[in-house]
Every structure is written in C-alpha cells, then in structure tokens.
C-alpha cells in the first residue's frame, strides 16, 4: 500500500496554489492542525477561502486566524463572524468589520452537515435549522410531514487540514476524545487531505480496523509532529 508519509510540513503544503479552498478542523483549541497552518503561513498561498468553525481566537497560538491576519484569506465560511463579547475582537472580526475579508456565518450544525454532504456525495439537504429566522430568507423552503425545512448545499474544498492522534502509513486515522470534532468529516470531504499526527505513524496492519475513524483511502499526506512542533 502507498506510503503517504512526508518528512516535513513544508513539503506537504508546498504545492497549494493561490485561490484554493481549504477546510481546517478543530474546536475549543483541540484537534487544530496548527503545524499545517503554520506551514501554509510560511508557504504564503494567497486569496484562499477557508471553511472552519471560527476565524481564530485571541490567544497567540497558530490557527486559521494566523492565515487571516497575514492577509492570505479572502473569504471565511464559519459559525462566528462577530465577537461573542466586546472584549473578544479577534483579528478576523476586526478585518471583517473593516471589509478586509468576506465571510458567511453558518449555524454550526448546518456547517458540519454541509461538509458531510460534500463527503457523502449528497446534492443538497433540508434542515429545520434557521426556519423563521433572517438566515432562511431567500432560501428554498419546503414543508415535509408538517414541518418546515430549509434547503442547504454541500461545502466542497480542495484541501482539508486535519490533526489526528494515530495513523498508519496508508492514512488510516484514529482520533482521541473531542479532538475528533470536525476532523473526520473534513478529512472525507476535501479533494486532498493533509494530516498532522501526534504519535509515530505505524506500518499498515498495526491499527485495529474496528477502531479506525477515517479510512486511509480519504487521506493523501501525513506528517508526524516532531518533538519541536506545535503540540497544544
């Protein structure tokens, strides 16, 4: 089976062209592909479109907000485009307020399902979320068995940036606890999936098939996080 291991993060992201659409996983600071994002920052691709739960946080850690602050991202699809508290204005929110970046705010469950739809070959789906709110205005709606639903479309991407707990050289992935979050659906949705791994990448056959969360067929590139990499 193909060995998808790369020696460095820089090698794994070197060919990402300007204008690419990327998905970046992580939630609550856990399962964030910080090493890949740092490498994309060094690589310098521009005019990117990002799909992620949020546009970064206020802490000094590398996240999607690092690429945004560097001016590499032209549009975000995410569940937060405003500060949750006046004291929490991130670089992303400041740039959005100044019209320096475009953004679409999406309810988190609809965001996850739009990514899953891309991963599952679904053309569109009806969800009850946003019915009766301004976010449903202008969208196709339908009553099914007495309940109203809003039509939502898949979110596709060129690249998924993923952080896993364990992997084998073919790219079978295992996540630990809430590190899982958006990682599996994003890993399965994108055209090219790049993964940073917290443990040694093991030979094929060593992971229990019943414990694999993402089959290696979805995964293209793997990098083991080095001891001097970004861990938290």
């Amino acid at each position: 089976m193909k060995n998808k291991t790369y020696q460095t993060f820089d090698e794994a992201v070197v060919d990402i062209p300007d204008g690419s659409v990327f998905m970046s996983a992580g939630f609550g600071g856990v399962g964030v592909p910080r090493n890949i994002l740092a490498a994309v920052g060094r690589q310098g691709a521009k005019n990117l479109t990002g799909i992620s739960n949020n546009g970064g946080t206020l802490d000094a850690k590398v996240d999607v907000g690092t690429l945004i602050a560097a001016g590499q991202v032209k549009k975000m699809y995410c569940a937060f485009t405003a500060a949750t508290h006046p004291s929490q204005v991130t670089p992303f929110v400041r740039m959005y307020n100044n019209n320096e970046i475009d953004a679409e705010v999406i309810p988190q469950g609809t965001l996850a399902e739009r990514i899953r739809a891309a991963a599952a070959g679904i053309g569109a789906f009806y969800t009850p979320t946003t019915v009766g709110t301004e976010l449903a205005v202008g969208k196709e709606q339908r009553e099914i068995n007495g309940r109203r639903y809003v039509l939502e479309y898949p979110l596709h991407a060129d690249y998924a940036f993923i952080r896993a707990w364990k992997a084998d050289t073919f790219g079978n992935l295992v996540f630990r606890l809430t590190q899982r979050n958006f990682n599996p659906v994003m890993a399965m949705a994108a055209r090219i999936t790049i993964v940073e791994v917290e443990n040694d990448i093991v030979p094929v056959g060593e992971l229990d098939p019943d414990h694999v969360h993402v089959p290696g067929v979805y995964v293209d590139r793997l990098v083991r996080i080095p001891p001097d990499g970004i861990w938290d």
Partner: peptide
Amino acid sequence: WRIPTRKGGGIGGAMDLAAC
C-alpha cells in the same frame, strides 16, 4: 446571535439547538 448595529453574528450551535 446578532446585534444589527454590528456586522456579522455569532451563532455557534445555538440555532440548531433552538430549532430542534
């Protein structure tokens, strides 16, 4: 989730939870 005098909004999972 949104104050109209400010740009954008913060929904998180609130709309899915509220609707369902």
